[in-house]
């Protein structure tokens, strides 16, 4: 039996758990360390912050195109998707288990649904260490199987997890999604409003929105914001197999790309597209 597809549902309106379900084949979703196990962050309530029973990360096994898969979906609404000790360990730990399977010759398809401001400040260095372990696991795992990242919602993907996105074999984005190391508000706070007005959405999405990132090759697929389209893009990414060379390993290409930039000149998304398109020829 296949689930009826309901039109006009936005992927970004779904919770992390519903997103994981949407990416797996109908009826195959099985959650690990779900809410009733209450493996919540031990660090939040001592600091006066209400924890969530799954610490904001859903780990789900199931299948994609008949192959075993694992989805790691971050819940944007809880603490801005911030990565703490538990949520970080859920992601890193699941990727490490997937690595074990891959080494044993039975690869599991890993998908990261990234919606996060980065490290959760209340857990600080615990989040930092966890994210380093996520990076390590992605790099080890993608020797065997593509690691696919999805950045769908307007919260976007920032901080240490934006580096994780940079390490993914394939990155799928919607127009609403955005990807950057530093969030616009932090840039404005640190460098001043002249550097970037964080409320200027047009400019923010011009730099780091899904359309721009795909246009310059820092993400691979621009998809519509509906569950079927995102799920299709994920299936197609796995069907494409491992990339010949991962983006984060293309050192000569990006050193050349940076070399042609005149950093004293006014630059925007469109100009960058044409500069780098020329460099490609």
């Amino acid at each position: 039996m296949s689930a009826p597809s309901i039109p006009r549902v936005h992927f970004t309106e779904l919770s992390a758990r519903e997103r994981a379900k949407a990416l797996l084949e109908a009826g195959t979703f099985r959650e690990l360390l779900g809410p009733f196990e209450r493996i919540e962050s031990p660090h939040l309530s001592p600091q006066g912050v209400v924890p969530q029973s799954d610490d904001g990360v859903v780990v789900a096994r199931g299948t994609i195109d008949g192959s075993p898969a694992v989805i790691l979906a971050i819940e944007a609404a809880f603490q801005g998707g911030g990565i703490g000790e538990v949520s970080g360990a859920k992601i890193a730990g699941a990727l490490e288990l997937a690595l074990g399977d891959a080494e044993a010759g039975t690869p599991v398809r890993p998908v990261l649904v990234l919606e996060t401001g980065g490290i959760r400040l209340q857990e600080a260095n615990l989040g930092l260490l966890a994210i380093a372990e996520v990076h390590a696991a992605i790099i080890a795992l993608r020797r065997y199987v593509p690691v696919v990242g999805v950045i769908a919602g307007p919260l976007g993907c920032f901080g240490g997890m934006s580096i994780a996105a940079g390490l993914c074999s394939y990155l799928i984005m919607t127009r609403e999604g955005r990807l950057g190391l530093n969030g616009p508000a932090v840039i404005e706070e640190e460098a001043g409003v002249a550097e970037l007005d964080s409320r200027d959405n047009r400019r923010v999405w011009d730099i780091m929105g899904g359309e721009q990132r795909v246009a310059v090759g820092m993400a691979d697929t621009l998809t519509e914001d509906d569950p079927d389209s995102v799920a299709r893009a994920v299936r197609e990414a796995f069907a494409a197999g491992l990339p010949e060379r991962h983006r984060s390993a293309k050192v000569e290409r990006y050193e050349t790309r940076l070399g042609v930039i005149d950093s004293s000149q006014e630059l925007d998304g469109q100009k960058l597209r044409s500069i780098w398109a020329e460099e490609r020829r």
């Binding site: 990076h135 390590a136 790099i139 080890a140 934006s162 580096i163 994780a164 996105a165 940079g166 390490l167 990807l179 950057g180 190391l181 530093n182 932090v186 840039i187 640190e190 460098a191 550097e195 970037l196 730099i207 780091m208 310059v216 820092m218 991962h246 983006r247 984060s248 390993a249 050192v251 990006y254 790309r257 940076l258 930039i261 950093s263 630059l267 925007d268 998304g269 960058l272």
Partner: peptide
């Protein structure tokens, strides 16, 4: 923290060095 940095893919530049060390 800068405009050019984000536009030109700072997250990917950092991923490149993470990738190299881990590799």
């Amino acid at each position: 923290y800068g405009y050019h940095e984000e536009l030109l893919g700072l997250n990917l530049a950092l991923a490149a060095s993470v990738n190299a060390y881990a590799g």
